[in-house]
Amino acid sequence: MANLLVRGIDEALVKALKERAVTHGRSAEAEHREILAAALRRPRKRTFAAVLAAMPDVGEDSDFERVEGVAKAPDVFG
């Protein structure tokens, strides 16, 4: 395994790291490793079907029907 030395870290960050480590029952070094791993892990790829299935049920199909004959949509961004 490789070693990583990080210099010039603000004392407040070191303190926050140590406090977070205590809450997770780990050493500061183990907490640092976990934070780095979580930040750099690639997101799990989901299929298109899984994304569609995860969408919330927000209404009936009729709620989203196109309205014909409306001259212009209101400008909601002012």
Rank of each mutant, 00 (worst) to 15 (best):
A2C: 10
A2I: 11
N3I: 00
L4M: 06
L5A: 05
V6K: 01
V6D: 00
V6H: 04
G8V: 11
I9A: 11
I9W: 06
E11T: 03
E11D: 14
L13V: 01
V14P: 01
K15C: 03
K15M: 03
K15P: 00
L17P: 05
L17C: 06
L17H: 09
L17R: 07
L17I: 05
K18N: 11
K18E: 15
K18L: 00
K18C: 04
E19S: 12
E19A: 13
R20K: 10
R20V: 03
A21S: 07
A21H: 05
V22M: 02
T23R: 12
T23D: 13
H24K: 15
H24A: 15
G25T: 14
G25D: 09
R26C: 06
R26K: 15
S27G: 09
A28T: 08
A28R: 08
A28S: 15
A30W: 04
A30S: 12
A30C: 04
E31Q: 15
E31G: 03
E31H: 03
H32C: 06
E34K: 06
I35G: 01
I35L: 07
L36C: 01
L36W: 01
A38P: 02
A39Y: 07
L40M: 13
L40W: 13
L40I: 08
L40N: 14
R41C: 06
R41G: 12
R41L: 11
R44S: 14
K45G: 09
R46M: 08
T47G: 15
F48W: 02
F48D: 04
A50H: 10
V51S: 07
V51H: 14
L52W: 05
A53R: 08
A53W: 02
A53E: 15
M55G: 02
M55S: 10
M55Q: 13
P56E: 02
P56D: 06
D57C: 01
D57Y: 04
V58G: 14
G59Q: 04
G59W: 07
E60T: 02
E60P: 01
E60F: 02
E60H: 07
E60Q: 08
D61M: 07
S62H: 00
S62F: 02
S62T: 03
D63Y: 03
D63S: 09
D63K: 04
F64T: 08
E65Y: 11
V67G: 07
V67E: 12
E68C: 01
G69R: 05
G69T: 13
V70N: 05
V70P: 01
A71S: 14
A71E: 14
A73S: 14
A73D: 15
P74M: 00
P74H: 00
P74Q: 04
D75R: 12
V76H: 10
V76N: 14
F77E: 12
G78R: 10
